[in-house]
Design a protein around this nucleic acid. Structure first.
Lengths: 185, 185
DNA sequence: GTAATTTTTAGACATTTGTCTAATAGCTTG
DNA sequence: CAAGCTATTAGACAAATGTCTAAAAATTAC
């Protein structure tokens, strides 16, 4: 994680030091939750190892996967983290996972400590924004098949490690249909 | 726009002053473009009056509306603005519009001028993030009909002012289908 | 105010996607 | 390794949505 912040080339060594010791180690066994719906999210985690899945329950009671996080990525119920309203998301470990958890208050204190950290906070949000906008575009511009092909090409981790049922709702279709699409290839 | 920044209750009068005189007035006649695909976006505009529509062209050559902005809202090809890569978006005035345009360099200079403005920049990005995440959720959780009903209930501006063809692609369906859905109500 | 243009509606049909169900395959645990 | 559980595939059919076309309605321009 330190490497990530270093790679932004914005923070001096002294400023980088400020985050050392701030994150707490956390482990989740397969199936355990980082957060469940109805709670207010107060942490952002960095995935050291493992895979996390975020999903919500729709009106018919089925789970809809909306985000999957692999090693060296950040994960949180961001909207709830930002607005401090209860989340609809459930974040669950798909495999045993080692995490670094940064508390909201401590993160805000870090942000308030310098203009540069404040800027890093903005940039992190911007990265998230760009990612989620790509996802919107894929929903609007592409068919489910095209979205699947894109995963296959550029994110083979998704195909390799994510059970079909979760992948289906992530792509916005039913497992039945994804199974059909796979056959066609 | 000043009112908006005031309402955040973060900036001192002196800091608020810094933005006065920074935005440039801009007007677009109906059908004119703020930016077209292939360009790099270097401004964020605040809509004083009028309506802007952002759309992309998909592989079949049809337009897909992905964002509509009304009075007192901010608009930009945000991803391009952030990454400084060419955009896929076309932003067009649906009606004659009066805008305030803030240049990227000047905005960055403003951000660099104080920790508080840096924070305001982060918060603006966070608001955008929360909005776009709502849109993702609506795509995943809801049917097109439910999305239309939500617009009808909470964003009647969309129904009142946006031509059906644009509304259809905004909702992820064809005009034919939206026309059908309307009939069913 | 009328003609020309654009937008919306709608019928007929095709395609895509979903639902329900059952069978097979794969994984987990004692 | 066997029994039980879960995930995936797939057939048959239904429902949702798209395509193509043309007419009606609305808007724009002269």
């Amino acid at each position: 994680m330190i490497e990530f912040f270093k790679s932004l080339q914005l923070l001096s060594d002294a400023e980088l030091q400020k985050i050392v010791g701030l994150p707490k180690e956390k482990t989740l066994k397969k199936g355990e939750y980082l957060i469940q719906e109805g709670k207010i999210c107060n942490e952002i985690v960095f995935v050291k190892s493992g895979i996390l899945r975020s999903f919500y329950n729709n009106s018919e009671g089925s789970e809809i996967t909306n985000c999957i996080t692999f090693e060296n990525e950040f994960m949180s119920a961001f909207s709830s983290f930002i607005t401090q309203q209860p989340t609809d998301e459930n974040i669950q470990a798909l495999y045993d996972s080692d995490l670094l958890s940064i508390n909201r208050e401590e993160l805000n204190r870090l942000y308030e400590s310098s203009l540069t950290w404040q800027k890093v906070g903005r940039m992190l949000t911007e990265f998230q924004y760009v990612e989620i906008e790509k996802r919107i575009v894929s929903f609007q511009k592409q068919t489910a098949k095209q979205r699947y092909d894109t995963l296959l090409k550029y994110r083979s981790n998704y195909i390799k490690f994510i059970p079909l049922q979760h992948l289906a709702s992530y792509l916005g279709i039913t497992p039945r249909h994804l199974s059909r699409l796979r056959k066609e290839l």
